[in-house]
Design a protein around this nucleic acid. Structure first.
Length: 187
DNA sequence: AAATTGATTCAT
DNA sequence: TGAATCAATTTT
């Protein structure tokens, strides 16, 4: 089962699209990943790991398949899946998902459309930092899903000019685009 | 377009 | 010890 996620040991650019269609489980909640972004190391100025290891980003330098959860803008817990090999930082930001089970009547297409919404709806927080997502016994874990179809690659959201804002490192499962976060402010 | 919100980080 | 930063959302 763990072998299924061997693709996470690749660089983030290769690992990220393979995560689309996989299932994220937290207790009773089950969601299918439909939108992710790849973040690299020192070569990626938009990455938390661009300036070396810190207490916050240290798990990005560790083994693949571990959760990297952090607080953004003082209110949103954002979740990443660590990828790449040990010592080579890499992470995949989970930006949107399709609710499958565990949300009762709150389940609607936009419930998990955006990394902040996803973290909030799943009840993520500091305790979820550094969890082995490939361990079937983990409360928070990944499970294989159906491979998704056509993948849409677009620029990442929220990065300043010159920090990799033009790189098409955001990947969306086109067949489930209605669950993805809305496009960057423009129209 | 602006307010919200607080941990992390970098500079004193 | 303090100011600037920030992978976002909601409300105007």
């Amino acid at each position: 089962m763990r072998e299924f996620f061997d693709f996470l040991r690749q660089p983030p650019l290769l690992a990220a699209p393979s995560l689309l269609g996989c299932i994220l489980v937290h207790g009773e909640a089950r969601v299918r990943l439909v939108e992710v972004e790849a973040y690299g190391g020192s070569e990626d100025l938009g990455s938390h790991a661009a300036r070396g290891v810190t207490p916050r980003n240290q798990v990005m330098f560790g083994p693949a398949g571990v959760s990297y959860v952090y607080l953004n803008y003082g209110m949103y817990w954002l979740m990443n899946v660590v990828c790449h090999t040990e010592g080579q930082p890499g992470a995949i930001l989970l930006r949107a998902a399709e609710p499958l089970a565990g949300f009762g009547d709150d389940s609607h297409p936009q419930l998990l459309a955006g990394p902040g919404r996803l973290g909030r709806a799943l009840g993520l927080g500091r305790p979820h930092y550094g969890i082995d997502l490939l361990d079937p016994n983990s409360l928070l874990r990944l499970e294989p899903g159906e491979p998704c179809g056509e993948v849409l690659a677009t620029p990442r959201i929220g990065l300043a000019a010159g920090k990799g804002d033009e790189l098409p490192w955001r990947f969306i499962d086109r067949s489930r685009e209605r669950f993805a976060s809305r496009r960057p402010a423009k129209g």
